[in-house]
Structure formats: structure tokens, C-alpha cells
Amino acid sequence: MRRYVIKRLAQAAGVLWAAYTVSFLVLDYLPGDPVTAMASAGMDSGQVDPEQIAALRHEYGFDKPVLVQYAEYLGRAVRGDFGDSVATGRPVTSTLADALPQTLQLTGAALLLAVVLGGGLAVVATYTSKRWLRQLLLSLPPLGVSVPTFWVGLLLVEAFSFRLHWFPAFGNDGLRGLALPALTLAVPTGAQIAQVLAKSLLTALDQAYVETARAKGAGRWRVHLRHALRNASLPALTVIGLLVGQLIAGSVVVETVFSRDGLGRVTAAAVTAQDIPLVQGVVVFGALIFVTTNLVIDLVYPLLDPRIVVASDRRAGFA
């Protein structure tokens, strides 16, 4: 078990490094110079003194070879220092740290809603013996996946804010403010969870152990929840790990639509302003969240499926 955790941690570090490196290279090759952007942001679009630019370049180390820059930046990044935002001058790390709670609230709530709604839909759809109800419920997830997030957001705002006045249309105030954006973000995520879970529940219900359970005299709920669901939840869990990345990406759209502060809006602003240190910080930060979630999921896996740890060690099968 310890070997397994160490192996996974090493993999996680590798992913973070790759995310940093790729984003560094991409940003380096993109047209648009951070110093020019910074200079034009600092002065009111007036003329920029070439000497000043050169000084700035020197100050930030942009006149050094790319590899040296990379090594220096990476060294600082490892210590948690991503430099200062070009647009605001604040350290990237604290900018992100300020935005993070809002986004964590949003994505956390969205994930919870997605699991509850998507999972509930899958369980009910596979449990019901009414054919029409099953068909109806199972047709919802593809719909949820295919409608665009911003449209769902606008629709919800129209219905629940402007007409019913139940929830505010924008802003960061408390739970009420969280409801609509979280729901918006939860729709595509929950739909995908429902799709995967319903499929694997149906597969699980076809397995021989389900028949064994029925032969014991177990009722349908017992068979469904205690036998089928636990087995079926494994593929769904893997999908949830992947969906966390989608949630973070989705927060860019949702925070913009609902004018919420958070990582998503920071990202949108940073990209617009070509704020390279900030963009890079966002990329690495997103990767960190993604990697952490998946690490947690991988560690939870063996608790749900006793076969996992054994399988991770096995190299060769035998005849």
C-alpha cells in the first residue's frame, strides 16, 4: 500500500511538472510580449521608451536564453512563487489564493449536486419497472450533455431570478447566490455521471452475483443498492475524477455568466490581458486540483473494490 501511494505521488508530481513545462513552452512561443503588455498596461497607451522596455526585460530575465528562464522560473515555481501579475502587480499566488475559495465553493457544490442528481436519476431509472419512465429518465442525460452551459445559465437566471425572484442573478452572496451557478455547472456534469452510472448499473444487474442475491431472497432495493450499486459505482467514480477538470474549465463560463469572482474570472481576465505569469499560475493550479482529486479517487478505489491494490502490483498473469 505504501509503495502504491509513493508511486502515485511521484506520478502526480510528474503531471504537474508536465503541465508547467507545456504551458511555459506554449506561452513562450505565442506572439505577444509580456513586457510590451506590461508596459502598455502601466502607461496610458502612450509611447513606450525602448530603453525602459529593455530595462524591464532585464529585470524580469526575458533577455536570457529560454532554457535559463525556464530553469529559473521552475525553481521558483517549485517553491510556490509564480511571480507577479503583470496587470495588477500582485503576486500570482495570492491572487489565486484569494479567488480559490469562491471557485471551490462553486465547483464543490456543483459536484455534490451532480452526484446526487445524476446518481439519483441513474438509480431510479434502472430501478423502475415502468418502461416509459425509464425511457424518459434515460433520455435526459444526453440532453443535459448536449446543451451549452451558458445557455442553461441564462435560462435559469431568466426563470428563477427575473421571473420568480427566488435567487439573485449574479454576485457572490452566500448560499442563495451559489444555487443557480452551481446548478448550471452541475447539469452537464451530472448528466455524464448519470449516463455512466445507469449503463454500469444495467450491466451489474445482469451479473451472476445479482442472481445469487435474488436467490437468497433479497428484495429489489437491497439487490439494487447493496449489490449492484457498489459495483456499478466504480466506473462512475473514474468519470467523476475526469469531470473535476471539466468543472474547473466550466467555472470560467459560469463565473462570467453570473458575474461571480473566482478562479474562472481571474483566468478569463488574465488571458484577455496576456498576463502570462498569471495564466501560467492558473494552469498549474488547475492541474494541481485535478491531480489531487484523482489521487484521492485512486486511494478511495481500493476501499470500494478490494481487487484494485492486488491488480496494481501484478505484472504477469499465469497460465
Binding site: 451472476a208 445469487t212 449489490h227 457498489r230
Partner: peptide, 24 residues
């Protein structure tokens, strides 16, 4: 029927490799 299954009529299924719940 559920009071008969398991209590008064037991079933030994065909394939032991897949007839037990793998996670219990």
C-alpha cells in the same frame, strides 16, 4: 416468493467465479 427463496429453496449457481459479489 422472497420468503421462499433462500429460506426454503436454496440455489447453487453455475459459475463460482462470477456468482459472488466481488466487493463483499
Amino acid at each position: 416468493l422472497r420468503t421462499v427463496r433462500g429460506a426454503r429453496i436454496g440455489l447453487v449457481p453455475q459459475d463460482p467465479t462470477v456468482s459472488l459479489n466481488p466487493v463483499k
